[in-house]
């Protein structure tokens, strides 16, 4: 684990096929690397290909050509089961629309990724309670998503991302559904986790204000990296 690089994208292309002959290139050769513990913002307007890039970095999808490597391993050479394990162990997702299961309590929502790895119900609950405490929701354990505010729901989602102790938190417009004050709180929380726990943080956003907070900004336009600048 001496290699400081966590993940690399190397000449990544992703082409979507619509119907028989229409090909839409969403990414047209994107290359960059993210180090362990690094805080990177990927910024771009809608249609720039940032959602596609998110799916590739989250290994929910494979590139049409080029390579995405995690810990030096090429994602394209891994099977679906390996990718599922990679997502479960190394990546924590934070979505714009939270994606909490409405019928589960906060603590059960947070424990959700843990059911796909070995462990007892007791240990899962303990870990979920710890994660919720860390995001400041120790008093909301048994609340359901509908009983929580937007900011609280996103905190539950962040707790769910960090409960697996991942190497990377991948946040997709994490403040997009929140007012600016609450959004700022959420960004502060994510940054605090990144600096305290040494977890890499990749935030995908269309807001330059948010992007400026990162150690490094990668700007996408029309499927290409147009600028890469340390903040």
């Amino acid at each position: 684990m001496s290699d400081p690089v966590l993940l690399t994208a190397d000449a990544v292309e992703r082409v979507y096929r619509l119907g028989r002959d229409i090909e839409v290139p969403a990414l047209r050769g994107v290359s960059f690397a993210v180090d362990r513990g690094e805080y990177v913002a990927i910024v771009g307007s809608s249609g720039s290909g940032k959602s596609t890039l998110l799916n590739l970095l989250g290994v929910l999808d494979r590139p049409t050509s080029g390579q995405v490597r995690y810990d030096g391993r090429d994602v394209r050479e891994m099977g679906d089961t390996d990718l599922a394990a990679l997502r479960n162990r190394r990546i924590g997702f934070v979505f714009q629309s939270f994606h909490l299961l409405p019928r589960l309590t906060a603590v059960d929502n947070v424990a959700l990724p843990l059911i796909y790895r070995p462990g007892t119900p007791r240990s899962r609950r303990d870990a979920a309670v710890r994660a919720l405490t860390q995001v400041g929701l120790a008093d909301r354990l048994e609340h359901r998503p509908t009983e929580l505010s937007g900011g609280q729901q996103q905190r539950v989602a962040i707790a769910r991302a960090l409960v697996t102790d991942p190497a990377l938190i991948l946040a997709d417009e994490p403040t997009g559904n929140l007012d600016s004050v609450t959004g700022l709180d959420i960004m502060t929380l994510l940054e605090q986790l990144q600096s305290e726990r040494g977890t890499a943080l990749v935030v995908i956003t269309h807001e330059h204000q948010i992007a400026q907070r990162a150690q490094r900004t990668i700007e996408l336009r029309d499927g290409l990296v147009v600028s890469e600048a340390p903040a």
Binding site: L60, D80, T81, A84, R87, Y116
Partner: peptide, 16 residues
């Protein structure tokens, strides 16, 4: 569908 997508993102395998 969204629940299934979420579970997969969180590490559920096809067989899970």
């Amino acid at each position: 569908t969204r629940e299934i997508g979420l579970r997969k993102a969180l590490g559920a395998r096809t067989r899970d």
